[in-house]
Design a protein around this nucleic acid. Structure first.
Lengths: 226, 226
DNA sequence: TGAGGTTGTTAATAATTAGTTAAAGTTATC
DNA sequence: GATAACTTTAACTAATTATTAACAACCTCA
């Protein structure tokens, strides 16, 4: 529903790789667009205005670095995320050296896990940027700018993870978040923690705010009571 | 991380205009939030705390002039910039007559050039105004012109880095600054300094002003206590 | 009802983060 | 160019926070 409406443009000259990435990103729910070289990549980008562009470094007609540079020169792509694909990880130093404003790079051979977790991470960052700084629900106020939680005017001390977890749940009151959801948003999908960890944090929040705010939906997850 | 982190809230009942402004402002790198009428605009403003609000004059539910008046009544929006959109330029005299504290107005039809240049200009002004030479918080006075800090009338000697760090934190009381933030603003982002360096400066400031002014948000950063 | 699954709870341990000090490096000043 | 003031670092300690394991409680459905 939310995250999966992002548009991703993938530019690479090898059809196999294009197909491979296309398959994996679509499976994740992203809208995917493809182009075989930098030139056509730029055209396509203008056309669909993607949220993120995956650029191969080595390509005929127009290579990734030059394409990136040209994209960055256009105001509409100043802040679009760009991820490079490099054949060898050492190539990254070149990209960095060229200083064209890449947000990340992924070395070939591409592992679906890595690809997806990097892309998810970048787009999550984007998500966060338009998150509200203050959530108000009844007598509960959650202010991300100051990292302060107030209940009935009374300040409640929250540790970082507790705060982030509460902020996530309270951001969509009534919506059930699965543990998988929560892990992805609060921990990031590369981190591996056991389910009970979330429960412990939930418990701590309940201790501080009372049991009525967060309810358990058995077999599914947790939600903030609207 | 300069101008492009500004949050702009646009309130207008015509979806086409909203979309048009949204597109143009986002292209410029601003963070944009939208609302379809004055009522929801006020809600949204409370939520995201924008730097600038663009208000259509004529709107159902709650018109721009009344919305502006209500915003100005809330302390947190006393100094937020407000720009009106007017259908006819003559309307401006009305707004001015109502004396609700608008900072500028733009007549429809909106030309992207005009919109952007006005908004850029206002926010540039804000940058300057936002760097007041004197910050006063309780018995603490921080004067950037003379580089002098006074606590209860008593002069407190501050070194340059200490002063700048204090000035940054005290400039937005309550807001948490991450170490990354602090490095960027006080040191500049090319300088590579170890985290503990910031801690040491914080300690020195606390030594001089007392521990109560600057508090630690573990895992996040530091803030000046409002 | 009782087996199997899910969640709650606790306390111990691990990991992370911040505080502190002194010393070394740097810069400005006279 | 010597001195003092300021800045940074390293090394260590202290405090807080995160995670896990182990077990208890609970719920569901044959």
């Amino acid at each position: 529903m939310e995250k999966n409406t992002y548009k991703i443009l993938v530019v690479d000259d090898e059809p196999d790789i294009l197909e491979f990435i296309d398959y994996n990103l679509k499976r994740e729910g992203y809208e995917v667009f493809l182009a075989p070289n930098g030139q056509e990549g730029i055209e396509k980008a203008k056309e669909v205005n993607p949220d993120l562009i995956v650029l191969d470094v080595m390509m005929p007609v127009l290579d990734g670095i030059e394409a990136c540079r040209r994209l960055r020169d256009m105001p509409e792509f100043k802040s679009t995320f760009i991820v490079f694909l490099t054949a060898r990880s050492e190539e990254y130093s070149e990209i960095a050296g060229f200083n064209v404003g890449a947000d990340d790079y992924i070395s070939k051979p591409i592992k679906p896990r890595v690809l997806l977790s990097r892309i998810n991470a970048i787009l999550r960052r984007k998500d966060q940027n338009n998150a509200p700084s203050k959530i108000q629900l009844g007598d509960l106020v959650i202010d991300k700018d100051s990292f302060v939680v107030t209940k009935g005017g009374q300040k409640v001390q929250m540790a970082k993870k507790e705060f982030e977890l509460l902020y996530l749940l309270a951001g969509k009151p009534g919506k059930v978040f699965t543990r998988e959801n929560i892990l992805e948003k609060v921990w990031g999908d590369d981190v591996l923690v056991v389910d009970r960890t979330i429960d412990v944090h939930i418990r701590k929040i309940r201790e501080k705010l009372g049991d009525e705010n967060i309810s358990t939906v058995k077999g599914v997850g947790y939600k903030f009571e609207a």
